[in-house]
Design a protein around this nucleic acid. Sequence first.
RNA 1: GCCGCUGUGGCGGAAUUGGCAGACGCGCUGGACUCAAAAUCCAGUUCCUUCACGGGAGUGUGGGUUCGACCCCCACCGGCGGCACCA
Length: 805
Amino acid sequence: MAYNHKVIEHKWQHYWRVNETFKTVENQDKPKYYALDMFPYPSGQGLHVGHPEGYTATDIMSRMKRMQGYKVLHPMGWDAFGLPAEQYAMKTGHNPREFTAQNIKNFKRQIRSLGFSYDWSREVNTTDPAYYKWTQWIFEQLYKKGLAYEKETLVNWAPDLMGGTVVANEEVIDGKTERGGFPVYRKPMKQWILKITAYADRLIDDLDLVDWPDSIKEMQKNWIGRSIGASVLFNVEDMNEQIEVFTTRPDTLFGATYLVISPEHKLVDQITTPESKAAVEEYRSAVATKSDLERTDLNKDKTGVFTGSYAVNPVNGKKVPIWIGDYVLASYGTGAIMAVPAHDQRDYEFAKKFGIDIVPVIEGGDLSQEAYTGDGAHFNSDFLNGMDKQTAIDTMIQWLEEHQAGEKKVNYRLRDWIFSRQRYWGEPIPVIHWEDGETTLVPEDELPLKLPAAKDIRPSGTGESPLANLDDWVNVVDENGRKGRRETNTMPQWAGSSWYFLRYVDPKNSERIADEDLLKEWLPVDLYVGGAEHAVLHLLYARFWHKVLYDLGVVPTKEPFQKLVNQGMILGSNHEKMSKSKGNVVNPDDIVERYGADTLRLYEMFMGPLTESVAWSEDGLNGSRKWIDRVWRLMIDDNNHLRDRITTIDDGKLDRIYHQTVKKVTEDFENMRFNTAISQMMVFVNEAYKVDALPLVYMEGLVKMLSPIIPHVAEELWSLMDHDESITYETWPTYDESKLVEDTVQVILQVNGKVRSKITVDKDMEKDALEKVALSDSKIQQWLQDKDVRKVIVIPNKIVNIVVG
RNA sequence: GCCGCUGUGGCGGAAUUGGCAGACGCGCUGGACUCAAAAUCCAGUUCCUUCACGGGAGUGUGGGUUCGACCCCCACCGGCGGCACCA
């Protein structure tokens, strides 16, 4: 009977479910393997064909590892808080909880239809109070450690997004919200902030401990942006104030001809002279009304205004003017810089525009054109004269420290993490603000602090979240009659996803985040697969929380994810990103219906390397289906029985190719090179079609190797081979090295680097003998006529190159 | 602008401690089977040239190193991703 995907897939999915085939068993005396997918946000759109690519990869690894004797943890869950549900709820008047539950149901149905070997008994859901109890608990630990604090800061205020909300720096792209593209303005507001900067060094340095793509490590390093330099103190003339600047080039201090402080700098008012006041005020208000977009758009044209005051350069006592300019950011370093126009392009542009002195202190470049930022001998620099850059930097830092005029300093581009969101559909921050000014945590034994049910979610209009409308929930009174108000901000979506992989280890634990011994048993995650769009934020936040929990003794490892792999994107057949508007979206449900889950899995693994983006091709998909049919026909006859050709007799014809295949498939799977593993199995099947006798053990081996990729087909073939049990825990095939060696090898004969002949000789033939054979080859002889042999290069078992002239 | 990745037949892609470029698949061509078609099985398929044997060119472009380069080095061009006044 021909292969019928609908019957078979339904049958085995049912079998796995009833038999709890993939239930993780703990405390077994086996090596462990934790294979993790980035859990999805269950959107209303349903699954995308991009999802199953990564899921199939981890599923293959999980299934192979089970067969290799590992205990495997392979879970799935839902990152279910998020903006779309809230937007939908506001629009329709529904509660996001119901809407989200529906979406999860649909996602789960779709994921189940693909036959992944998840242990569904461990499913987690970030919106489940039993889950977010522990998200809130982690927040409380952060608070107790001083890593969560409230601060009035300039936030990214998006008044047009959901009735007004604040978004994180990371969610702002070109001055607009990442979601929706609404304009973002800077507005001071009281926010909860997590002190991720306290972990900046460890977040960079511990990247050395993990097996991640270099590109991702690089992105994280750049995001954190550690720069080592010095702070320098400038006294303000005629005033008992100092301006501290940060510079990575203290060696150019003799070339500092002015200072620039940001418009928001705290000393602006004090140092502005009466004559300059009007101009400064005008400039500041102009800057304040600019959106971030406008501010970055003015990139090329530097603006600024002179304060009227001067500072004293500590190293040479010279007076330098103090300017205000918005090219200096309040949020980086000290919000003030020393400007060295000769050796910094930004300062150069500013100085040119405002006619400020440009004093070179390093030889090189052409100052009539641009600043010189390279290395060179210093001059005009007193005790630094003649030194190169690094020596001068070290010497200057030493001088600054000896004269209490500055010190070595490290700065980070990374800012602290703004953790508040003015939204309903998120974890409530478990904090109460009391009327006497005290702020307390909700006691641990009262967690979870549940999100109140609300029929109608409306913006508060004040910038607060919709929770501010819910008086019953917001207002509290303690046992002494003291009145208080709950924190109305909720947590960002990043919160629940920063630790979910810990909960899978022990998802039902009501006493703690997860049992300590179980965490020791399963951590770290051995393989984490997901899209590169989470290269920075999710992975950085999760690492940060993990390190905090490590310091608290909650988790046993410094890093959460040992190996990380980013799958590429699946593009539309027109090589563009799939999107509704382009009409090139492929729905996995359709593919499963028409071709079956196994075909989809096979195709997505065969279409190219996992890490690359590849365009969808209906023909390619169809080819994968045809190959499954071909494998099926190789073994199964029209009466749905094993073919007679499958026998216990081994005529030896398939020995070599079989053992080669086992070796290559095993190694390729291990390295996640699924496309080449599949191609090797295709070669084996092609060979199998050419011989009369198919040894049963080889066919069983093939089915085992296929089972991680096309598990339903493999289970069915396995049972047709007269096995009663699932193939899941069968032993992975092994190969015999001795079957791979050949007695003879083909050697390439070249003349002047061009292939002219090929010969077959005994393996490991001596160099001299091989050279003789090569020179006497008839084809080679023709090429050597009337020529002098200058040199012969002999690489045994591979090549002989004869150089003639 | 800076950083990272990438460029191989008609298409997806294989092959790198430097040693037969194009595995495998798609598509296409031919053959077998069939009344016929589909499906299937078998064979061929980088380009140019040749009746054929053969020969020549060829891994984005131009140089270089080497007996030998898709692979290493230099310069440039195109594509993708990240960052973007971070001092």
